[in-house]
Design a protein around this nucleic acid. Structure first.
Length: 753
DNA sequence: GGGGGCTATGGGGGG
DNA sequence: CATAGCCCCC
């Protein structure tokens, strides 16, 4: 598309155009789902650049790297390669980039390590152990959450200890030592030259607030124009950083925030909608725009979404509407088990592909928890439908990848104790737990890194050689790293650390998969080194060091990886789907205790957040929306029976397609046997099998020839019972393998009178 | 110090 | 059900 002048502005509606053109002073855009928010942001930036603003002065913060990359691509289509000069990225990645230049002013090395959640928990576990605290009471995950919340609210360890509310809360939960752990954790990270995810924000804040060498003015001048996407998901700390960058004498306050309170789904990591309210008072000259027209979805979907979200009381008033009047009603599928749910979804995908000529890439399956992906994967595989699972175990969290990366990390930053602990005995070199404990104790007591201990203290007999070999190995790597690019050193380490040899010993398919993964990691490093893009006559990046590479991947998630063949069905969590859209969307597992989640039902108010999450889920759909739930679900080693999700009832019937009740044999689903079938929109949620009504018969009473009901398999006839009380039963409802062997002592059978 | 097998425990979303 | 952690034995 060749653009002359500013004709791109014709592609915006009135409100969108006003929001895009209003580039001076504070602006707030409240943008409903599918309202063209990204389009506004894109054209706004394009317009800025067209108006002569230096792209390098524009800072555009998003929540995923993917969103940032998309935006850059779209800006590039309008303004050309100058788009690359825009600072666009996530809060974490942009700040990490800045801190790589500035960290030394705060007492960190510029090539600091970024600790992921696992590293953090491992550091905490060590501190908890060292303090002789019970690790069951001080569960690292819990402690991490407390510390993370403190950092996100700018509460230092000292402030934490003198904060009555926090201390009282910890005492009440019998964890009065959290503030001590917090203090030690901060010190230990600093000693290790490491920042956790929260530190990337916190240290950026310190850099601006404490202002060493006038860094505050430097970045205030650097970033004259700020844009923040998904503002409802920012936390207190992020907001304070934004204020430091924009609120100062003489500032033009060119900051544009875009958000939707109805799509706030990250309060668990400290996001607060309060920020929107504060924004209005902190920037009194604010101009507000509301984008209310939904261009994405058809009428039934928009209506349903409005119905659902209106159950939340606290909201910024807006009315989302669409002019796409025709469309398909929302399909609801109920199944007996989660396996059947997977099968029905796969069937429906085949049907949609044939009837509506959809490609795989038009289709997404969205779930509340990553663990739900498995059944859908199995069924899609059966039908040979290509799919891609996002989230869950990311490439970089695979063991073999983490192992090699740990070598790279230690080579770059020898103070990185977490990396050292991971590889000091991998591959095995006879350094066991005892030695490791001693090392870490000495390190803790003397406030040294383990590497420093290894290099200074003379260790006793038995391990002397293996420890010495390890030190020499890492020294050799460090020496090589000084003169090599990231790829050369990484492949050198792969070959010489013993990892290659170890992996090649394993001839199993899994083992070969691990080698492939490591090879593709090395390929990725090579790609990084060979990056040759030139913008405005300058190379995009010049730093090909290992350190630069590690930083580039540490904030990457699975969802950010490049597509090779783009025609896949997408499987992802609802959280990960935010900002995306698909022609056809399946939202699965709509059951109480799953969506809304069990945890959310325990805490007051958090059902509202689950509802917003559901709102996000259904508004991803353009034309076809299908909601599914299963009557029973195998969870945590047992069959659970959950009511249909309350959210289903919040959609009125005229937006829904006929409820499909699925069962191979109708008799299985007949109310007269199992009872309690009710239409979906009745006041009380439908409970197809109420476990409370089910009375298990005494195992010894069950004899061959009897008709029995099984909670999961339905009705069947007992064929035999053996001496160990194992019955063979022929179930009416099971077509594949109707004969099941049931252990009567677990009493899931009721005799039919 | 290493490895196998058993038990207890947890169990959400992500940068 | 998965995994971490523990115990026990080599």
């Amino acid at each position: 598309m060749k653009e002359v002048g500013k004709s791109y502005l014709n592609e915006l509606n009135d409100v969108q155009r006003q929001a895009a053109l209003c580039i001076d002073g504070p602006v707030m855009v409240i943008a409903g789902p599918g309202s063209g928010k990204t389009r506004v942001l894109t054209y706004r930036i394009a317009h800025m650049i067209h108006s002569g603003i230096n792209p390098g002065q524009i800072l555009s913060l998003t929540f995923t790297n993917k969103a940032a990359r998309e935006m850059k691509d779209r800006i590039e289509k309008v303004v050309g390669t100058k788009a690359h000069r825009v600072w666009a990225g996530t809060f974490h990645s942009i700040f990490a980039k800045i801190l790589r230049v500035e960290a030394h002013r705060l007492g960190y090395p510029n090539d600091f390590t970024i600790y992921d959640t696992d590293d953090t928990k491992s550091v905490l576990a060590e501190i908890i152990k060292h303090l002789n605290l019970d690790k069951k009471v001080y569960a690292p995950g819990l402690v991490r959450a407390r510390i993370s919340a403190a950092k996100s609210n700018l509460i230092t360890p000292k402030a934490y200890a003198s904060n009555d509310e926090l201390m009282a809360y910890d005492r009440m939960n019998r964890r009065p030592m959290i503030h001590v752990i917090y203090e030690k954790y901060v010190a230990k990270c600093k000693r290790a030259g490491a920042m956790d995810f929260d530190d990337l924000l916190l240290q950026m804040f310190r850099l601006l607030y404490q202002n060493p060498d006038n860094t505050r003015e430097k970045y205030q001048n650097q970033f004259k124009y700020l844009l923040v996407d998904e503002f409802q998901d920012t936390n207190y700390l992020q907001y304070e950083i934004l204020k430091l960058l924009t609120v100062y004498p003489g500032s033009q306050q060119n900051i544009c925030i875009v958000g939707d309170d109805a799509q706030s789904i990250y309060s668990f990591r400290g996001a607060t909608i309060e920020n929107i309210l504060h924004f209005e008072t902190d920037f009194p000259d604010l101009k507000t725009f509301k984008l209310e027209q939904n261009y994405r979805s058809t009428q039934f979907i928009v209506d349903a979404a409005n119905e659902v979200i209106n159950h939340n009381k606290k909201q910024i008033h807006k009315k989302i509407w669409t002019d796409k009047s025709d469309g398909n009603k929302i399909k609801v599928i109920k199944t007996m088990t989660e396996t059947e749910e997977g099968k029905r979804v796969a069937d429906t995908i085949i049907e949609q592909k044939n009837r509506f000529n959809l490609s795989n890439r038009d289709i997404a399956i969205l779930y509340r928890t990553n663990g739900q992906s498995r059944v859908f994967e199995e069924q899609l595989r059966k039908y040979n439908i290509p799919y891609r699972v996002y989230g869950g175990l990311s490439f970089y969290s695979r063991k073999e990848i983490k192992d090699l990366i740990a070598y790279l990390r230690l080579t770059v930053n020898d103070k990185d104790d977490e990396a050292l602990k991971r590889i000091i005995n991998y591959p095995r070199r006879g350094i066991g737990d005892t030695t490791l404990d001693q090392l870490s104790s000495i390190a803790n007591d003397n406030e040294l890194s383990m590497w420093e201990v290894l290099n200074s203290v003379s260790l006793n007999g038995r391990n002397k050689k293996s420890l010495g070999d390890f030190v020499n190995l890492i020294r050799a790597f460090k020496q090589k790293a000084a003169t090599s690019d990231a790829y050369e050193i990484a492949s050198y380490i792969y070959r010489n650390s013993g990892i290659e040899k170890l992996l090649k010993e394993d001839k199993s398919p899994e083992g070969e998969g691990r080698i492939e993964n490591v090879i593709s990691l090395l390929d990725g490093i090579q790609e990084f080194v060979q990056e040759d893009e030139v913008v405005d006559g300058e190379p995009l990046s010049t730093d090909r060091s290992l350190s630069a590479y590690l930083q580039s991947i540490s904030l990457m998630t699975d969802a950010d990886e490049k597509e090779t063949d783009p025609d896949y069905v997408t499987l992802m969590s609802v959280h990960a789907a935010k900002g995306l859209e698909f022609k056809s969307v399946f939202v699965v597992g709509l059951e109480e205790n799953l969506f809304p989640s069990y945890q959310s039902l325990m805490e007051s108010n958090s059902v509202d957040e689950e509802r917003r999450l559901f709102y996000v889920a259904i508004t991803r759909a353009e034309e076809y929306l299908c909601l599914t739930y299963a009557n029973s679900r195998y969870q945590y080693g047992q069959t659970r029976f959950n009511d249909p999700s309350r959210f289903l009832e919040e959609i009125s019937e005229h937006n829904l397609d006929t409820l499909i009740t699925i069962s191979k044999k109708p008799s299985f689903a007949e109310p007269k046997i199992l009872g309690n079938f009710k239409p979906l929109n009745s006041r009380k949620p439908a409970i197809s099998i109420n476990p409370a009504d089910f009375v298990a018969s005494n195992p010894t009473d069950i004899k061959p020839g009897m008709e029995v009901i099984h909670l999961k398999f339905g009705q069947g006839k007992v064929l035999t019972v053996d001496e160990r009380l194992v019955a063979t039963i022929m179930f009416d409802g099971l077509s594949d393998a109707p004969e099941k062997r049931i252990m009567l002592q677990f009493a899931k059978l009721q005799i039919v009178e």
